[in-house]
Structure formats: C-alpha cells, structure tokens
Simulated scan of single mutants.
Amino acid sequence: MKRLFSRFLPASMRKGETTIPVIRLQGPIMPGGNQFRPTLSLATTAGLIEKAFAIKEAPAVAISLNSPGGSPVQSRLIFKRIRDLAEEKNKRVLVFVEDVAASGGYMIALAGDEIIADPSSIVGSIGVVSAGFGFQELLKKIGVERRVHTAGQNKAILDPFQPEKPEDIERLKQLQLEIHETFIDMVKERRGAKLADHPDLFTGMFWTAKKGLELGLIDGLGDMRSFIKQRYGDKAKLQLISPARSLFGRKLGVFGSEAPEIAAAAAHGLADAAEERAMWSRYGL
C-alpha cells in the first residue's frame, strides 16, 4: 500500500529521489523567430525558465546550452532572468554546454553557478562583432539609383547601399567597445578568481572546453546525466521542461486559410538562413 501511494507523489518527493528540471536553450540569440526559424530571446525562453524554477523541491536547475551567440541585449536579458530567479528561489544553476557556448552563448552560460562542457565543446569568444554587406556597386550595375531623404544627418548611418564613411565606422567601433566592456565586466564578476591571466582571454578568441577549463572559463568536463547522478545520487531524475504549444502550432494543419502566413514565415526563415549558417560555421559547426 505504501509503495502504491508513493507512485502518486512527485518524483522529487519520493524517498531518495531528486528531480532536476532541465531547460534546453539552442540556436542563435536574436529577437523574432518563428516556427520555421526558432531563435533564443527573452520572449521565447522566459516561459521555460519560469516553469523550471517553479518546481519547489528541486535543489537546482540544469540548462543544456548550444548557441553561437547573437544579440548582446537578448543574451544579457536571458542571463539576468535566470540569475534573478535563482536568487529568488534559492536554487543552484548548472549549465551544460553542448557543441558551443560562444559570444552571447557564453554570456548566457555565465548564469551558471557551475559550467560543465564536453572536452570538444567550443567556449569563449568574449567580444563583439558587426557584419553586413555593401551593395552600392551592384546598384550601379543594374541601373538603380538609391534615394534617401532624412531629417537628421546621422539617420542613414552605415546604409548598405552607400559607401562606408570613416566617421560612421568610428561610431560603430565606439558602440562595440562599450558593449565589450559590459561583457568583460560580466565575465569577471561571475568567474572572478577562477580566470587565468591570459592575453587573449577578452580578445574574441575561442577554445575547446579542455583549454577553457585551464583558462577558468568553465568548471569541469563531462555530460549532464553523469554529472547529475554523481552530484545528487543514482536515483536523481532529469525532467525536461517543454515549451507550451503555440496557437500557431495548434492551428497548423487545421485551417487552410493560414497558408499565406505560413508561406511568408517560411520564406522569411530561408532569407535569414545564410546569416545563421555563418554564425555556426565560424566555430566549425
């Protein structure tokens, strides 16, 4: 009878068992995204984070992270939401890196009280980058004239259809330096004395996790399941926190009238695929 009753208790309340909620954060970090092009942002991750920290009996929350980076703002917002809830709910945060946690991905990893990675994972890239294209010569070849009218002399700064101006580039670099300083401050605050004195630590360089461990960027090498079992015992259970199914997903395949919206979303995703591919390929992925 006692055994039967225990089956109806939450796993975290059964004798000798500990349940650790798991959040999976994967993909580039940027606002927007859709069913065909999922991305990480506070809007897309807040629900998962809240659900994981709402499990009262869990002593910790595990985060499976795989991201090449992206928006510094969204990266910091996700980081802050995790840290705020960790302090509010008094829970430990364990981050497990899969293929890569670089740039904004590493910024999110800093939310962990411990960062664990596979020896071949890529970590680091503590820097800021802006990339784009210039199309002014293409317009000349196809006989198109670009016309831009602004109120404010800097409203058309870094227009990809006009030649670059030295003063515009200098302004962009100043913005990058300020964002970089914020990133460096976060790393120093979260990693503290663990960091090695290495000249390339804050240059945007990235390393395998094996080297990252020597540099103090992570705390250990391994995988989530083995680490959790070792830390919380053989009866410890991992509970994956799944996102709620969206209204878009529920309607898909039920009403034919949404076909134009679905096609537009798919086309938008294809248009941005090259940018995302470049982010992953930078780390050999």
Score class of each variant (00 low, 15 high):
44 T>F: 02
116 I>R: 04
53 F>S: 06
271 A>Q: 12
39 T>Y: 02
60 A>M: 00
165 K>D: 07
122 I>M: 12
184 I>E: 10
63 I>Y: 01
147 R>H: 14
108 I>F: 03
247 L>W: 07
32 G>F: 09
215 L>W: 01
138 L>R: 08
119 P>M: 10
86 A>H: 04
212 G>E: 03
176 Q>N: 13
23 I>V: 14
213 L>R: 09
6 S>K: 09
57 E>S: 02
231 R>N: 04
149 H>Y: 13
203 T>S: 15
271 A>E: 13
253 G>W: 10
270 L>W: 10
82 I>G: 07
195 L>F: 01
147 R>D: 14
166 P>W: 06
61 V>L: 00
145 E>W: 01
112 G>D: 11
167 E>W: 10
54 A>C: 00
89 K>R: 14
18 T>V: 14
265 A>L: 15
40 L>S: 06
14 R>P: 01
238 L>A: 03
227 F>N: 08
5 F>D: 08
225 R>W: 04
77 L>E: 15
168 D>V: 03
263 A>L: 13
54 A>D: 15
150 T>F: 05
20 I>W: 02
87 E>W: 01
164 E>T: 09
8 F>N: 04
143 G>C: 13
61 V>D: 01
204 G>I: 05
19 T>K: 09
92 R>H: 07
13 M>E: 12
116 I>G: 06
221 L>N: 04
